[in-house]
Every structure is written in C-alpha cells, then in structure tokens.
Write a protein that binds this DNA or RNA. Structure first.
Lengths: 310, 310
DNA sequence: GCCGGCGATACTTCGCCGGTATGGAGGCAG
DNA sequence: CTGCCTCCATACCGGCGAAGTATCGCCGGC
C-alpha cells in the first residue's frame, strides 16, 4: 500500500463523488476508480458504498479512513519535525560541566538558550572535567565545560575554546577581620584556617594555592575541605576561616560574605567549552550560536576555530 | 512523499549501510541512494550522516524516523482494522428495543453476542416501538425490537421477522388467593384490582385486555398503571392486585410472585426484529448471525427473507 | 423513451522506479 | 606513497504501473 491510496480514499470520502474527488486530486476519474478498487482488493474489504445518492464509506471504510488520516498526519509531521530538528529548534543538548561553571557563565547562557530554543531538551550533567571529556569523546555528551583544556584519549579531536579567565580569590565572613580589605596577602593567608574545595577537580585550586604558598604548605594541609564552592562560601559566612576559590564566585553575591583579592594574583585554569566538531548537532550549533552572541570573546575564538560561516 | 520513502529510510537506519539496506529491501543500492536523496531534498534536511563507520541518522533523521515508524504502523493497522470491521469483529451496533424485550430474547442474545463479538460496541436504546422504527428508518439505529411489525413512513423498506409469540398472563403475589392456580378466568380478573403497564407501547397489553374483557371495562378503568413490567411484578409481589403482562415475564423468575395463565388465552403483539437491509453493516450481519444460531425459528424466517446465503 | 450523470472498463501514454555500469572519495596495506 | 578496496553518488536505460482518453453499462428523471 502506498500513501497515494490513503490520499485518494480520504479525498473520495470527503467529496462523496468519484469525479469531484478526482478533480480535487488533479487526476482523472478512471485512475481514481482503479486505485480505490486496488485498495479494496488489497485490504480485502469493500471500503465504499457506491449509491445513487453518493459514495459513502462502509464501516470498514470508516475504520480504514481513521487510520489513514493518522498515517498521513504522521507523514506530514515527519517533514515538519525533521525541519525543526535540522534548524535546532528541537532536539536535545547533553551538557557536561564542572560545578563551578554554574557560578558564572552557565546561568546566563543556559537561561538565554532555554528562552531562545524552548523546544530543545537540555540534559545537564554536573561532573568532573575528566569524566565529562571522556563522555564527550564517547559521544555521550554534546558539549562540555571543563577546568582547563580537555585531556585524555580522543581529546585532540575536540574543538575547545576558553570561556573567560580566572584567578584565585578569598571569601570571608562579614565579621571577619579581613572583611574590609580589598586584598589579602599570602602571609596573611598562612595564619588563617583555610577552606578549599575537594573533589576530582580540586587540583585546579590546590595547584594554584601551592604555587602561591610555595613550600610552606602547612596551612594547606590543615585546611577544611568542602565539596563545592557553595559550601566554601557557607562556611566562610560562619566565620570558620578564609575560603579560597575561583574569582567567578563574585558572580553569586551572598549575604554575610565578602570577597577579597589574593596578592599576588594567581591564575587558575580557564573554564573551557569543548565539543566534537565531527558530529555537530543542530541543537549544538544553536547553542554555540547563543554562546557566540552572548560572549564576544568566545565568539571570536569560535570563529577562529570553525570559520565565521559556521 | 510516498510510503516507500519511509520504508527505505527505516531500512537504512536499521542496517546503517546503503548496500545492506538495499539488499534487505530487495532492490539495488543506487535506487536506494536516489530515494534517500530525494527524501532529503523534499524534507529540506539531511537525514543521514554518511561516515566511514556507517550511516547514522542525524537529529533531523531521528525525528523523521520516529514519525515514519508511526505512519507505517498506522498504515498497517488500517488494513487490519478494515478487515476486522468488514468481518463484523469491530464496529458498533445501535439497537432500539422496547423495555419488555429485556425479559426474554435480549438478555440471552445480547449476552451471546457480547461474548462472540467483544470488539463490537453495543449502543442500547430502550424506546417505544414507534420511535425506534422512525430512528431505524432515519439511519440512527441499525436494528430494532418492537412490539408488532414496524409502522410509519419508510417502514416498508425494513426487513422484519417475528421473535417468538406472546400472550397475556397474570402475575400475583405468593400469598394471593390465586397464587396456587395454574390459570385465572376472565370473570375472576373482573373482581380484582388490575395492574397494567402504561407508556407509549401500553396499547399492546391494553388492547389484548379489552379484547378479553369485552365491553366490561370497569375493572380496567380502575386499574393501577405501572411504567414497566418489573414494576408490575413488584406491585404484584406486594399483594396489591393482579398484574397483567406478556408471557415473557416468566423468563424472569422473581421470589414472591406466581404466574398464572389467563383463560381464554389471549394473543399479544409479537416482538419483531427489524433492520434496514439496504445498508447492512457487518456488525449487524454478525448480530443477525447470532440471532439465527440462537433462535432456529427466527433463523428460518431470516433465511426466508434474505436467502440462506446471507 | 430519450437523455444525462456516474462509475467501471479497455486501451494507450508516459513518468518514475529500479537495474546496470561507472565515477569519485577515502581508508588501508604493501 | 601508490594501488586497491569499500562505499556511496551519478548516469543512463528498460519496464512497470499510474494516469489519460474513449467508451460502456446502469439508473433516474424529465
């Protein structure tokens, strides 16, 4: 059976007249008669009653037509859906990201993307950089935000652009002696109870700290370890000590804490956006588009990697 | 777009390889390439990624394939459903009937039909003979059970067969003086409080009674009128009087009542099964089949009207 | 009883699907 | 690096079948 048969049967049912249905279909009447006859032979059931008053579907015809309508609707929807998916209006975007990315670039970007592409289902996976890179290479993710450029097997096939820069800052409770300071020196840090993040991506901050503190790591060894930056800020707010984390913490103003620069200024690994260029889905393309429009510098880096046309 | 395109796209997605998909479809590879290319041109979206590792649907392709599967399922179901409807396995049967038909033939027939054709939706409309005949002529019903042959405009186009015969009987409470009698004479009836049915079909019983009682209708004028035979039996059970109704009341044994013949035996209008032969639906055919097998005499009458082949 | 409308049938035409042959691109082995 | 192989795309041709034209059969109405 072909879609033609369904269209013809529906037209015939609608017009109740072979001649008029054929005219509406843009064909002559005999071919329509033949196609309907073929259809009735194939289904093994008489689908239409030809009466003097007109052509009417039999109960079998009614059952057939109901299905035929749905089948043709599905076919029409197939084209529409394919077009939408191709334009990135629908689909899914699987994003892997480190928790601290929720501080700065993600809330804004995801918010805009969600509004611009309401049809795209966002699948958000908070995970350490290594794992998300592996998942991206394995095709289980579409895009990642990691601390530092992706490493590991297959990483060389990924396209990566840094998303802003980052350095180490301190966070203290409002009542803390340092609360009023714009910056804290290294020697001041050494006398404090430090609060740092643990987890797989911990090295990012810790390496920065070791660089800063040099060989004197006693303060670091006795540090309080928290699961994420939010906990760090919470603990700092309690006055427990001096929290240390990425400067993007400033993006999440929180009552009861103050942020201070740490001197000398110590760079931390950049947040890096990565994706596999080989199978770039339309949804990913739309996402990159949003990022491009939202962050001019990231957009420029993308243009450099992919060409402005993409 | 034709069903062929959907089948080809699904085969290609399944096999991930033009050559193998074509072989599975029983065609050569170039035609498959061309059809897929045509499909992609028509949808305006690339549906498959041709990679070295195989052919994989793009997001647009996934969206298309999901719809394609449903469309083809609907098409297959169309044939199946049409066949079922043609064989009377599904569909609907709109039956109009007088309430007293629920006493005898309907419970048995409907029960069997419901078990034999669970897919047929029974629409039951209890209504007076005149109304159901009009509805049958108007095409709002498929079959009726009336008291007496159908009358009114268009009734001559209906096929009708009597469903058994009927006569007047009496029903009394178990404690009634007549309870032990096998039969009650007319003179005995005249001395009793009578209970008869009202409603549009009342004349059936009333005419029988008038015939029986002759000119002495005093007993009838003072009779209690009930809406249906069940009420009659209920009132009789209370000992209020002597109920009068069709002999089919015996089919519904009820504690507390006894049935008595009325002498002389008085015929009542037959229950008559009618339908429009011109547009006999498969469900109706199946129903008639059930009736035929269930009631040999009705079957014989049907064969006489329609020919044994039907 | 003739005419007109409607669907079915017979036969022809032509478009398109499918087949064969071939091209081109990319990976792999020697 | 080159030749080969795999795989999909393109080109061209033949045949099936869908569509067109002409006509018939049937039924109802004027």
């Amino acid at each position: 059976m072909e879609a033609r048969h369904l269209r013809y049967a529906l037209a015939l049912a609608e017009h109740g007249h072979f001649g008029r249905a054929a005219r509406a279909l843009g064909i002559a009447q005999p071919p329509l008669s033949k196609q309907i006859a073929d259809l009735e032979r194939e289904t093994g059931a008489r689908l239409f009653d030809r009466t003097r008053q007109g052509v009417f579907p039999t109960p079998a015809g009614e059952a057939f037509l109901a299905r035929a309508r749905r089948a043709l609707d599905e076919m029409a929807a197939a084209t529409v859906d394919a077009g939408r998916a191709a334009r990135g209006e629908t689909g899914r975007l699987r994003l892997g990201f480190v928790a601290s990315a929720l501080l700065d670039p993600l809330p804004d970007v995801l918010g805009r993307f969600g509004r611009e592409r309401p049809g795209v289902r966002l699948e958000l996976h908070e995970m350490a950089s290594r794992r998300s890179t592996a998942a991206l290479v394995a095709g289980e993710l579409d895009v990642t935000v990691t601390l530092g450029p992706p490493r590991g097997a297959g990483a060389e096939r990924l396209v990566s652009v840094p998303v802003g820069h980052d350095h180490l800052i301190a966070v203290v409770g409002s009542a803390h002696p340092y609360a009023g300071q714009a910056s804290i020196g290294v020697d001041q840090l050494r006398r404090q109870q430090l609060i740092v993040a643990a987890g797989e991506d911990e090295p990012a901050v810790v390496i920065g700290l070791r660089t800063l503190l040099g060989e004197d790591v006693a303060a670091l060894d006795g540090a309080t370890v928290a699961r994420d930056v939010h906990t760090i800020m919470g603990l700092a707010a309690c006055g427990i000590g001096v929290g240390l984390g990425p400067s993007r913490m400033r993006s999440v103003p929180r009552p009861g804490v103050r942020f201070c620069e740490v001197t000398p200024r110590t760079a931390l690994p950049d947040l890096v956006l990565s994706f596999a260029d080989r199978d770039r889905s339309p949804a990913l393309g739309a996402f990159l588009d949003t990022v491009r429009r939202n962050c001019p510098d990231v957009g420029a880096a993308l243009d450099l990697r992919l060409g402005p046309a993409c």
